[in-house]
Nucleic acid binder design. Structure first.
Length: 917
RNA sequence: GCUCGGAUGGUGGAAUGGUAGACACGCAAGACUUAAAAUCUUGUGACCAUAACGGUUGUGCGGGUUCAAGUCCCGCUCCGAGUACCA
């Protein structure tokens, strides 16, 4: 009987379905373990061989944990809302729901072939009304919440209105868009609408007039993490800044908690660092300045120590202060400058490094020296950070320096011995000069001293600023979750929770309306029962993916996002597997969303993902043929020098070990039907390069083809064997034979010449040693996600057992269990053959026994002056004296000792003897 | 610019400060075969040398710590990723 992987895999996949092997429920008596993959967006291209890498790794881990006795939750679903399906709908008219369903079906087929241990009964789809009901529900709860800085948590907005009517804003410290102060009397005197407008300043989900990233080609706004270098991540279209009224989430309120939480989770340092940078906490001071006309404004600085080096002030062009501070004489030029900057796209603004700006006409008074400081307007100052205004210290800030040089403004150096004739001195080191009361202090002393003085004189206060912005939550698109919001007298109100889900309506076209409204403007009857119009925007992609891990715990619950019971059992994700591309998007929003749910008592853990492992990207490995220019002749790779050739991408599926299948190539394209070849050793060798995996490079490898040719178990093992999990690497089908050969060797331990060959003899010492070495290594490697070395350990063990002609049942039993997480199908087949009536998934992970690993003799590397020369073996009982004596008397040693008396002899037990001559 | 990674044979990659190159691919030789494929066996960092033994050198570059460094420390070079007028 040969290893017939095709038949074996099909049969066991059916068995798992029939026996619901991977279905889990809350078993209170067993410890839980939650293993989660980042759910995919089902794209039209289907899965390529790079996609399953993380899924295979997490599946191995899940199966391992299950064998160790954990109750493992390992679900899968689809992030089903997204731009490509909508773009496709615009082009073809096909409803995105249909496209999405087709793609999901295709994904599922592909995933099923690889043999994952998902509990598909818990599948979620973000576009399913039963699912997005809870996305809408969370939004409603955010709308009706504010963030209390003192309690460090979200609170019901009703509490806030109660306080307002009792004491106004006195004594409150709340996260808000704009600082406001009013008394109880003032609040109570407001109309309902005015009160609603004020509350918008505090709600966690609020409507705000903000500068947004507007992408004209996509016709929608984008979040910061959806834009890179002024271009949209999806599609690469230019993005411009525009002020719009949008739904926002007050993520910034959670900035400190998002930062603190990083200390209690087990993520890689680089990923935590990326998040820290994105949150961007900086400690400094807000300082009050006033113009000579008495108009006061605030700036933010982290370098209060440089206050005596301020020679001018700068406002962002979008700042509201610009209008107040521009004098009549300068009005014209300022207006022109602002118009000009507005027209620039974000990309142009980034690319254009030239210094631009205009003088506002006003002067501010230096708070310490009383000197007048000209106030300029320039686009190098950002409206969205700090207060949108800065004090410029050209001597110690390179941007201020460039500006000062360009407009011939004075530069006052403040640090002893620094040279600012060519460039600014930005480093926070040195001793202060020209700085009044700060003179003689180091910069590190001067920063707090300056802020102390500023506070003492009432000129400002300490402030911690965050770079993290609130998330813009509206999208002018069709294929997303509708907001459970209607408008009455232009103010938004939420639907009641009983009215959820608010289902996505049908539209005749997926384009904006003629009047420029979002596609939902085309929907008929898009209003409440009372006739109030419903919100026309939809939610962004990250809405549905922010709490999906909670929904898996209790996917069919129609009364709650997740029951308290299910949540208190599964708690949070123990292992989260996914790509780094979500570092500043999903992984920030999801943590924020969970913290909010934690505050309102829905999630029992403050952090959603305890441990996170990033699998590397799998790149493509393209192959090339070399066509002689102007001919239909192709020259083999190593002969191409001396010819004038054009490299042409060739489909990697026609190439094996870089050798071209010439017949397949001729069939590939009529143009090549009559192609001639200049061969080396009768073969055509292709060139290769690492590139992105894409259709146009003909380097896409489909997992289905690999499964067809080698089997799912080979694919799983090979993906792990390719290299360290977290590292990016090219897919290279060369080498898969080695892994496939390994599985056949495993098979041949059980079947010799087609006959079942397992015996019940007593295992030998060597056999036990080989097995226990494997158990120890594999256990250790899985726990450390070092799957490539685990696969190597299997190969070594099987080679050893083959050499020992091991056919012993108990040894093979444990071998099969160890192999089960990696290659589940062959493991099931062999487990069955060994006479077990149940699935190998219900076996117990074997323990290694150190006794079996004991060596009789240990190799010692004998080295002289640290350079090893030869190996000697000694028994475990040998004393240092015996070892030293034997080594010294060994004929090889005499050459190195050369009659001298060794200065020192170092003996490291079981490892090395070093003799210093 | 800043932050975080990384650099080891022809290739992918192994090495708790202790025999560098495990394992695999590729390549070479051999066995089986009419032949090829498949399979199996052996060899395979480089250099020198040999009938054989053996020797030298070697983990991006330059220093240092140590009996001993791919591994730790200091200073560079190059490559990758993230991020950026964030005051």
């Amino acid at each position: 009987m040969d290893y017939n992987f095709g038949e074996i895999e099909k049969r066991w996949q059916q068995y798992w379905i029939d026996h619901q092997t991977y279905k889990v429920s809350e078993e209170k008596s067993k410890p839980k373990f939650y293993v989660l993959d980042m759910f995919p967006y089902p794209s039209g291209a289907g899965l390529h061989v790079g996609h399953p890498l993380g899924y295979i790794a997490s599946d191995i881990y899940s199966r391992f944990k299950r064998l160790q006795g954990f109750n493992v939750l390992h679900p899968m679903g689809y992030d089903a809302y997204g731009l490509p399906a909508e773009q496709y709908a615009i082009q073809t008219g096909q409803h995105p729901a249909i496209t999405t369903q087709n793609n999901i079906t295709r994904y599922r087929e592909q995933l099923d072939k690889i043999g994952f241990s998902y509990d598909w009964s818990r599948e979620v789809r973000t576009c399913d009304p039963a699912y997005y009901k809870w996305t809408q529900w969370a939004f409603i709860r955010m709308f009706h919440s504010y963030y209390c800085n003192q309690a460090r948590q979200a609170r019901p907005i009703d509490e806030l209105t109660a306080v307002f009517s009792r004491q106004g804003t006195t004594g409150l410290d709340i996260a808000c868009s704009e600082p406001m102060t009013f008394t109880a009397e003032e609040w109570n005197a407001r109309t309902e609408k005015e009160q609603q407008e004020i509350l918008m300043n505090y709600r966690i989900a609020y409507l705000g007039d903000t500068m947004v990233n507007w992408c004209p080609q996509l016709g929608t706004v984008l979040a910061n993490d959806e834009v890179s270098e002024g271009l949209s991540i999806r599609g690469g279209y230019p993005v411009v800044q525009k002020k719009m009224r949008q739904w926002c989430l007050r993520v910034s309120a959670y900035a400190q908690r998002l930062l603190d939480g990083l200390n209690i989770i087990d993520w890689t340092d680089s990923l935590k660092e990326t998040q820290r940078n994105w949150i961007g906490r900086s400690e400094g001071a807000v300082m009050h300045f006033a113009t000579t006309q008495g108009i006061s404004f605030d700036i933010f600085t982290t370098r209060a120590d440089t206050i005596f080096g301020v020679t001018f002030m700068v406002l962002a062009p979008e700042s509201e202060l610009v209008e107040q501070l521009t004098t009549a004489a300068q009005h014209q030029v300022v207006q022109e400058y602002i118009e000009k900057t507005k027209k620039k796209t974000e990309r142009e603004r980034l690319a254009d490094k030239s210094v631009t700006g205009v003088f506002s006409g006003s002067y501010a008074t230096h708070p310490f020296t009383g000197e007048p400081l000209p106030i300029w307007i320039s686009d190098y100052v950002l409206a969205g950070y700090g207060t949108g205004a800065i004090m410029a210290v050209p001597a110690h800030d390179s941007r201020d320096y460039a500006f000062a040089r360009h407009f011939q403004l004075p530069v006052v150096p403040l640090i002893e011995g620094c040279d600012v004739s060519e460039e600014s001195f930005d480093a926070k080191e040195g001793v202060m000069v020209n700085s009044g009361f700060l003179n003689g202090m180091t910069v590190k002393q001067a920063i707090p001293a300056a802020i102390d003085e500023v506070e003492k004189r009432g000129l400002g206060y300490r402030k911690i600023n965050f770079r993290l912005r609130d998330a813009i939550f509206s999208r002018q698109r069709y294929w997303g979750e509708p907001f459970p919001v209607y408008y009455k007298d232009t103010m938004p109100y939420t639907l009641s929770e009983e009215e959820l889900p608010l289902e996505l309506p049908e539209v005749d076209k997926f384009l904006p309306t003629e009047t420029g409204e979002p596609p939902l403007g085309r929907a008929r009857n898009w209003h409440t029962k009372e006739g109030y119009p419903l919100e026309l925007n939809t939610m962004p992609g990250f809405a549905g993916s922010s709490a999906y891990y909670l929904r898996y715990m209790d996917p069919a619950n129609n009364d709650a996002l997740v029951s308290e019971d299910a949540n208190s059992y599964w708690r949070n994700v123990d292992l989260y597997m996914g790509g780094t591309e979500h570092a500043t998007g999903h992984l920030v929003y999801s943590r924020f969303w969970n913290k909010f749910l934690f505050d309102i008592g829905v999630s029992c853990e403050e952090e959603p993902f305890k441990k996170l492992v990033n699998q590397g990207m799998i790149q493509g490995r393209s192959n090339f043929v070399y066509r002689l220019k102007g001919t239909n002749r192709f020259v083999s790779f190593n002969l191409k020098n001396g010819y004038d050739v054009t490299p042409i991408h060739v489909d990697v599926n026609m190439v094996h070990n870089d050798l071209l299948d010439i017949e397949a190539f001729r069939r590939w394209n009529p143009e090549y039907k009559t192609a001639e070849f200049i061969l080396e050793d009768g073969k055509y060798v292709c060139g290769w390069a690492v590139e992105k995996m894409s259709k146009s490079m003909f380097n896409v490898v489909n997992p289905d083809d690999i499964v067809e040719k080698y089997g799912a178990d080979t694919l799983r093992l090979y993906e792990m064997f390719l290299g360290p999990l977290e590292q990016s690497k090219p897919w290279d089908t060369n080498g898969i034979d080695g892994v496939h050969r390994f599985l056949r060797k495993v098979w041949n331990l059980f079947y010799k010449e087609g006959v079942w060959a397992v015996t019940k003899e007593v295992p030998t010492k060597e056999e036990l040693k080989s097995l226990h070495k494997l158990i120890k290594k594999v256990t250790f490697d899985i726990e450390n996600f070092s799957f490539n070395t685990a696969v190597s350990a299997f190969m070594i063990c099987v080679n050893e057992l083959t050499a020992l002609q091991c056919r012993e049942r108990t040894i093979l039993n444990d071998l099969v269990v160890c192999l089960a997480p990696f290659a589940p199908h062959i493991a099931e087949e062999l487990w069955q053959a060994l006479g077990h009536g149940t699935s190998v998934c219900d076996a117990a992970w074997p323990q290694w026994n150190e006794e079996h690993l004991q060596e009789d003799v240990f190799p010692y590397a004998i080295s002289f002056n640290g350079k090893s020369r030869f190996i000697l073996e000694f028994s475990a009982e040998a004393t240092n004296e015996e070892i030293e004596k034997t080594v010294m008397e060994h004929p090889h040693s005499q050459k190195w000792i050369d009659g001298k008396t060794p200065k020192k002899v170092i003996i490291v037990p079981k490892k090395i003897v070093n003799i210093v001559v």
